[in-house]
Write a protein that binds this DNA or RNA. Sequence first.
DNA 1: TTGACGCATGCCGATATGGGCATACACTGG
DNA 2: CCAGTGTATGCCCATATCGGCATGCGTCAA
Lengths: 120, 120
Amino acid sequence: MARAATTTDIFNALGETSRRQILDVLAAGEATVGAIVAELELSQPQVSKHLKVLRDVDVVHARHDGRHRVYRVHAPALRPLQTWLARLTDAVNQHYDRLDEYLADTQSSARAGHTTHEEN
Amino acid sequence: MARAATTTDIFNALGETSRRQILDVLAAGEATVGAIVAELELSQPQVSKHLKVLRDVDVVHARHDGRHRVYRVHAPALRPLQTWLARLTDAVNQHYDRLDEYLADTQSSARAGHTTHEEN
DNA sequence: TTGACGCATGCCGATATGGGCATACACTGG
DNA sequence: CCAGTGTATGCCCATATCGGCATGCGTCAA
């Protein structure tokens, strides 16, 4: 057991730049593998593989058109990601806002400057 | 040159489940490394390393408090992700909606059933 | 000063992953 | 049925990454 997560969930799938690029292309509309290959600087096998990953996490759907394969984004699959993000930012804003107020208070009344500077 | 992207951008950083878990913990408020270790089933070094990654992409900030280190989420860093997601879904919805109408039209008028079934 | 606590790091091994290349498959046109 | 185009796959290598373990460093208590 070394290395943990894999290309099994959307987060990971979108972790790879190439994959995001492919999605960017598909954002403009459906596209065949060939079209994607042409637009990006990727080899055909590479694109096919990345598309497979994207397909596995259901973020793109494929349709046959003769000997072509037309891919398109399946937006609903992105929902979990958006939800998670929203939840996180919301929680953070709420909690931290209150916390900041709290700190601002204690800072003026009780022992001051115990907590040191922020970094990074 | 094998393997490409790394733990250099937010997308990748959040690609790892452990890292997302840590953020989930931090969503509830600031926390020390020890607290995170206690709440998750991760070893201390592991948590520290993941925190470093998160720090490097600026998604968390750290503050010294005695011999403790208090971490907190830095929400603004998540913006790029949200923006990208929004852009993608928006684009998709617009383009594809029109495209679907188009298909619905041609389907009834011109040669029908040239494009085959959808899969996956 | 010494010892303990809290966290960060370095090192090592195992392994999944991305990329390249060649090839198998599917479908279409002759 | 055969050739050609468009994709998908398998195989191999190089490497970044994750996890475990031990240790280094800074801070606080006695």
